[in-house]
Design a protein around this nucleic acid. Structure first.
Lengths: 351, 351
DNA sequence: TACAAGCACAAAAACGTTTTACTAATTATT
DNA sequence: AATAATTAGTAAAACGTTTTTGTGCTTGTA
């Protein structure tokens, strides 16, 4: 099981130089070594297939070129594209990612602990949920670690933050409905009434309200249902709505719905399908989040696409800046805006 | 930016013992240290909030308790649940995961290279696609690294392999259709005709054929469409099928379709919806893969669920076994079988 | 001719642990 | 009482790099 490692000394010996010279060659410290020796060293490196030991390097450099990515919900649909973005820029910059998943406050604290013993140089926290206090993140920052959080609403402004403009997403979605001459708008929101409201759901709802108020329309509480941020939540909410409202005359029913996220929208679509309500003819649907299957639901979902890959990239870039800086940088707070993908569920294509 | 690190020597000094004693205490080497000193050391550790430096430990132990997880398709729907399984058991065993994503052979080789310089103790490869030769993986194994591949069909039998029984998935799905008295079966397969066929698609198709042959039914080539493993692929394939076959009299049309994966099934469902073909009344649909939204398509998809979390767990367990073993272990080849989730798209609930 | 400056390299210390070997004191065994 | 065995602890080497400092040598300049 013990793999014999070829070290810098082996290379040095065979090349007839000192270890320091090999190191200088490998690190491009040109002023320290002549052309012939350099060539010889490079030759031997190739011959022996020498691979520098990053651990030993980290030891002396006191930096590992490694960052910790901690996520609280692996199943969150945003996780993959965000990670993709993070990976993109971090790899280009020569950093490795150590993955740590956490499910609650304790395990998040635990993850930080182990990442610290692993001597990561910085942290990215990615989590939709802000149910947990973030004092451990604060402490990290205070101890000098570069930290950036993605989509995590922190009270503290000293920490780098990348977030998606959820309010604007709700606003834009609703404006789209208004532009299609809808005047009676309903909504399915995501668990606003819990002790720890989901911040993104709240923001999206505020955007919705804002657009409606600006348009001078009354918002009818009976047309708003709150539920879990899941397929099932959307399904149940829409069933409830249909049961209460659909018996009424058409003129007293909403003609369009803003649904707080993609999963709920799919669930709602199912409920509508079962009830025989035609989308978009009888009811228009717009939602936030742009899953890969959005174009293939029936009807295809008009969505507000979240800039998730960009969020990951941006976070990574900010982290790298801080990693490279020799002096403490002021915290950045970046908010990314969404764009709309018009498909079938609002009927806009017919205009 | 320089964080002052509290080292084992600081602890030793303050506790009035040697560094070795502190080390012994922390590693539970009880026979080397008395009760009073031990208590004092633990006390100081707490006082100073001492955190052992894993890098330094790795240096001397020549092992990092870190494994490389390399995946070739971050967007692959199996990635998240598999990673979940891997993370589960690896964390419980005290290992860290370094994530590396690759898109082609070169980047995979590159990922291996950097993971090796990072001195990972072992590797897990997760990738559906087997378009690339795997000689670099072989080399890893030969050099003594524990390696396990998930869902990657390797010609070489010396490498640990965890795979999902795709053939059985196709077989089971088809048997389900047969049990519902369908006798005219069609299929949408996943890119079988390319130079590098997707192995899982091939296997699922073989399972389908096997079930049909066992039932003594003729397979009609006109009822089989091949397409990309995507939503769009399923959509286009089904449209093609409908255009060719639906004009014919009902008695000459298939009554059920096996669709090679979930994405294609969603695409196909869309095509059927647009064509006004009712599912399952006019056409039954069964597919492989159990995405979170399967229950919320209209109609809900009857699926063969893949044991993805288990695959990740199993792979991680095998890896840990090999990591802990002092002698080389024989390669394990584990095949996990699927189970069926009967929903609406086959109409079985009515029986 | 001197002396400074630059060049090409090497020696050695350092990074923070673990582990082996050793010592001294105590306890057990004959 | 003498010897062996155990206990409690330490010193020092080792892991594989990087980096600082030093050392001859060559070249340039006054």
């Amino acid at each position: 099981m013990r793999r014999p490692e070829v070290t810098i000394r082996h290379v040095a010996e065979r090349a007839g130089v000192s270890a320091s010279t090999v190191s200088h060659v490998l690190n491009g410290n040109d002023q320290h070594v002549g052309a012939t020796k350099r060539a010889r060293v490079l030759e031997v490196v190739r011959e022996l297939n020498y691979r520098p030991n990053a651990i030993a390097r980290s030891m002396v450099k006191r930096a590992t070129a490694t960052i910790g990515l901690v996520i609280t919900e692996l199943q969150n649909p945003l996780f993959v594209p965000v990670t993709e973005g993070v990976e993109d820029v971090l790899r280009a910059e020569g950093y490795q990612i150590i993955l740590a998943s956490a499910t609650d406050w304790e395990s998040e604290a635990q993850a930080i602990e182990t990442l610290r013993t692993q001597q990561v140089d910085g942290f990215i926290f990615m989590s939709i949920s802000q149910r947990y206090p973030s004092d451990h993140i604060l402490k990290l920052k205070e101890e000098g670690f570069p930290v950036v959080v993605i989509n995590r609403y922190l009270e503290d402004d000293t920490i780098n933050r990348v977030q998606i403009d959820d309010r604007n997403a709700g606003y834009t979605a609703t404006r789209h409905l208004l532009s299609l001459k809808h005047t009676r708008l309903g909504a399915i929101t995501g668990a606003l009434d819990q002790n720890f409201p989901r911040r993104s759901a709240l923001e999206r709802h505020v955007g919705w309200q804002q657009a409606i108020q600006e348009a001078g329309l009354p918002s009818n509480p009976a047309w708003v249902a709150d539920g879990q941020y899941t397929f099932e939540g959307g399904y149940q909410s829409m069933r409830r709505i249909l049961a209460e409202i659909w018996p009424k005359p058409a003129a007293e029913r909403p003609t369009a719905f803003f649904i707080a996220n993609e999963s709920m929208a799919v669930g709602a679509l199912k409920a509508l399908y079962e009830a025989g309500v035609r989308v978009p003819q009888e009811l228009a649907i717009v939602t936030v989040g742009d899953p890969p299957f959005a174009a293939y639901t029936a009807p295809a979902l008009t969505t507000i696409a979240l800039p998730v890959v960009e969020a990951g990239q941006t976070a990574a870039r900010i982290l790298v800046e801080n990693l490279k800086a020799t002096t403490a940088l002021p915290a950045q707070h970046i908010t990314l805006t969404c764009h709309m993908n018009i498909r079938e569920s609002c009927g806009a294509k017919n205009l």
